[in-house]
Simulated assay, not measured.
Amino acid sequence: MVDIAVTRAATPKALPEADKLGFGQYFTDHMFEMGYQTGKGWHNPRIVPYDEFSLYPAAMVLHYGQAIFEGMKAFRTDAGEITVFRPLDYLNRFNRSADILCIPNTDVDVVHAGLNKLLEIDKRWVPDKVGTALYIRPFIFATDPYVGVKSSDAYKLFIILSPVGAYYAAGFNPVGIKVEDKYVRAVPGGIGEAKTPGNYAASLRAQVEAKKEGYAQVLWLDGIERKYVEEVGTMNIFFKIKGELVTPALNGSILGGITRRTVLELAKDWGVKATERQISIDEVFEAHAKGELEEVFGSGTAAVISPVGELSWKGQKLVINGNKTGPFSQKLFDYVTGLQYGKVADKFGWVEKVAKV
């Protein structure tokens, strides 16, 4: 059994209203914390009150960006249980990002135990309104007070929790996406497949410009030929063409999404042909022109399934499925959220029960 010390918050905070949560605006009473030092390893796992923490101005993360994070969700079921969707898959991906950023791997069992204990302590924060959840954000950053480019010898790991509503203002309604043909986010051989802050910093300029044009997100093309579809800023992307589900193959610059994996596994279980391959933006537009592009949707932890109603590329605009949610997108959304909220039987073993309300 993992020994995790607990220090309780002196004064619990008032809960926010479930219909006014937004995304990532409120945080629970406690957080999980653990440190790392070369020669000592990861140590002192503990739960403490959510609060500010001190950092040296020379901390390496501030100068060289050595940091990673994850994102998953906990849910409150009708049976009064708190569940987490595929937590070990997320925590194993956390270590994959650590490898890419030269951060020491964590013991997944220790972090998993810390997360479960944190959820048990702060379970009152898991909202019960349909469409809400408790977002879980583990992150690690380099703390060595050293101004010089190298891997740090010291790190901090935290897990914080945030009650959330829908990620997009449109909710489950189709969103408009701009295909980015000017800026580049990542290239194979870089850090594009890691969940690291630098990847998201690289996306901000294009995102700001897309929002000015009225689009919710950008769809990135490959960084070399600016031709092949990669991923959306916060989601993996899927195209349903002539009954076949197509998503870009993982090539070293695309995040291997857990929801992406879920979609592919469900498609296989449902007998829907699903292919991971290179797909060009020209092919997407040509399929639409031929009437063969049936649906486009994104997949990700924050939004689960997000139907795409419009794509814009170099002044060309195409409307998908009459800017309406397609039947396959709807089926996926209903099934995955049904699993998460305990309304659908979990035959895959993806849902972990961690507490009772």
Rank of each mutant, 00 (worst) to 15 (best):
T301R: 13
E310P: 02
N321T: 01
P307R: 01
S306E: 10
I320T: 07
G298I: 12
F297S: 07
E310V: 13
A302R: 05
K324F: 02
L318I: 15
S299V: 04
P307V: 02
T325G: 01
P307G: 04
L311G: 07
E294Q: 15
A303Y: 02
T325S: 10
L318S: 00
I305Q: 09
G322H: 03
E295C: 02
T301P: 04
A302N: 09
V319M: 10
Q316A: 11
K314E: 11
K324M: 03
N321W: 03
I320P: 02
E310S: 10
T325I: 07
L293F: 13
E292Q: 15
Q316K: 15
G326W: 01
E294G: 13
I320V: 15
F328M: 15
G326E: 02
V304R: 13
F297C: 06
L318T: 00
T325H: 00
T325P: 01
P327F: 00
A303C: 12
S299L: 06
G309M: 09
E294H: 14
E294P: 11
T325R: 09
T325L: 01
A303G: 07
N321K: 07
G315C: 01
E295T: 02
F297D: 05
K324V: 02
F328E: 05
E294R: 13
E295K: 04
G309I: 05
T301I: 12
G309Q: 09
G309R: 08
G309N: 09
G298V: 14
E295S: 07
G309L: 08
L318C: 00
V308K: 06
G315A: 03
G309D: 08
L293P: 14
E295G: 02
G309Y: 10
G322L: 03
V319F: 11
N321M: 04
E292R: 11
S299M: 07
N321A: 15
K314F: 05
A303D: 03
N323M: 06
S299F: 06
S299T: 06
K317D: 13
N323S: 09
G326R: 00
N323P: 01
E294F: 15
N321V: 08
V296F: 13
I305R: 12
L293Q: 12
K314S: 12
E310G: 03
F297L: 05
W313D: 02
F297M: 05
S306G: 07
L311P: 07
G298C: 14
E295I: 01
K317S: 13
V304H: 12
S312D: 11
S312H: 11
V319P: 03
P327Q: 02
V296R: 11
V308R: 04
W313K: 10
I320M: 05
Q316G: 01
K317R: 14
L318F: 00
P327W: 00
A302Y: 08
L318W: 01
S306Q: 15
T325V: 12
F328P: 09
G322K: 04
A303T: 05
G326H: 01
G300D: 13
F297V: 04
G300C: 12
S312V: 14
V319N: 06
G309E: 09
Q316R: 15
S306V: 14
G326Q: 03
T301G: 09
G309V: 05
